[in-house]
């Protein structure tokens, strides 16, 4: 199903409730139809480079944004970010860190690795909804991706 339409958003999030809340919000805004969820860092990389359980490579040029959590099983968010930004095939894809952590070293490291945005997920849902809406709106509709 997903493979028919080109994927525009990948959400890398191991916390399924967070993933669901993101999805819920994006759906309400009608911008969730071309979206994939990866539950850990390894799955995210497989998905992006067509490896392992995902032999069919997705169309990277159609990808508008990757929402990336930091605390992930197997391969953590910063490692995923590093690999993406070092690979010429993926380094142009906007990556937004969407995390619970507001620890200084994480933020610094993320920017050093070339992250495009760093957002802390608010606890209160009204704030959370606000952030996700704005992020989705900005990266999917406002931002011009590389052609």
């Amino acid at each position: 199903m997903h493979n028919i339409e080109p994927v525009e958003i990948i959400i890398v999030e191991d916390n399924l409730s967070d993933a669901e809340l993101i999805l819920h919000t994006l759906k309400k805004e009608k911008i969730a139809n071309k979206l994939l969820i990866a539950e850990d860092g390894a799955e995210a990389l497989d998905l992006l480079f067509g490896k392992g359980a995902y032999p069919n490579k997705i169309n990277l040029s159609a990808l508008k944004v990757i929402f990336l959590d930091l605390k992930l099983p197997k391969i953590n968010g910063l490692e995923v970010l590093k690999e993406l930004k070092e690979n010429p095939l993926t380094k142009h894809i906007p990556v937004v860190i969407l995390t619970s952590s507001n620890q200084d070293p994480d933020i610094k490291k993320a920017y050093e690795l070339g992250v495009n945005s760093y957002v802390v997920k608010p606890v209160v849902f009204s704030d959370f909804k606000n952030v996700v809406q704005k992020m989705g709106f900005y990266w999917l509709l406002v931002n011009e991706k590389m052609k």
């Binding site: 605390k71 619970s100 620890q103 209160v124 009204s126 959370f128």
Partner: peptide
């Protein structure tokens, strides 16, 4: 511990708050 608290405790709270809001 602080890192863990900031990350791990927030996520379930966000779920409680989010789902209840929905």
């Amino acid at each position: 511990f602080a890192y863990s608290v900031s990350h791990d405790l927030r996520a379930p709270l966000r779920a409680i708050n989010g789902y209840t809001n929905i």
